[in-house]
Design a protein around this nucleic acid. Sequence first.
DNA 1: TTATTTGCAAATCTTTTGCATGAGG
DNA 2: CCTCATGCAAAAGATTTGCAAATAA
Lengths: 150, 150
Amino acid sequence: MSEISSHKEALKHSGLKNTKQRNAILNILEKSTQPLTADQIYVALINEKTAINLSTIYRVLNTLAEKNLIVKTSSVSDNKALFELNSFEHKHHLVCVECKKIIMVDECPFEEYEKKLKEKMGFTILGHKLEIYGICNNCKKKDEENKHTQ
Amino acid sequence: MSEISSHKEALKHSGLKNTKQRNAILNILEKSTQPLTADQIYVALINEKTAINLSTIYRVLNTLAEKNLIVKTSSVSDNKALFELNSFEHKHHLVCVECKKIIMVDECPFEEYEKKLKEKMGFTILGHKLEIYGICNNCKKKDEENKHTQ
DNA sequence: TTATTTGCAAATCTTTTGCATGAGG
DNA sequence: CCTCATGCAAAAGATTTGCAAATAA
């Protein structure tokens, strides 16, 4: 229940009405460890017997993103919109350009860099996302194998 | 002409035929300072009287991305696929969460961090992208003004 | 009560696909 | 030649929108 009331507060603070659908969507996002598509949220809600319309989900997600309660990103491989709670936290990951696998990393070499940007450009930093593109160990091995069969 | 022959080489090296359409698309991407959507490429080609079909553009872009000659990303605001030449260069930018403006920055605090990742995880790094989310100076000013009118 | 939100159905927009034709090596 | 690439039209899939009914404040 505590998270429900915190959503109520967050919605109120953004001037949005506290509806069953918005709370349900925020709860799904809160439980998820990764960004979700509108459809994944839809399926999750249907599974837990929460009746909702897909277009409502899209509308809610866009509204929440406008208010910065959630963050909209985009999956490169299949080009769908992804949504996650705005934790204002750092996100770092490695993206394999071959298999598209995403590997999370947790170290952050940034605190100082961010401070400098803030001072220099007057840009208030809420968080950052770092994607490192390359080839993972698995794909390197597969590439080696394929050299022989091709 | 030098860039045309370099595209020829690049295509050959990837086992792809050197077609008029592929060269035209690579040329457009080469001239652009920013990632383009399939449709933007289409318009650019039509403008320079290069006849091409939109579905050909999609097919070429996907093929080139598979071969890592270009990089596919995704625009957050309107969820379209974006393509740019794979420069294997660093890309850093600030994204304002309010007006969605993108501000390029060029400093990079990363060389060491990347080396460490490579050694630790066997991940071969081709490039990286850093997005810093926050609020730009303009939006901060507008927010201040709106406090009075709301 | 009244503005906001939702459901539903239809529309829109981006991207993909099947198939016949055309072009590159 | 023979395979691969392209054009065209149609399909598929994600997201948006108009409107009437429902709901929060």
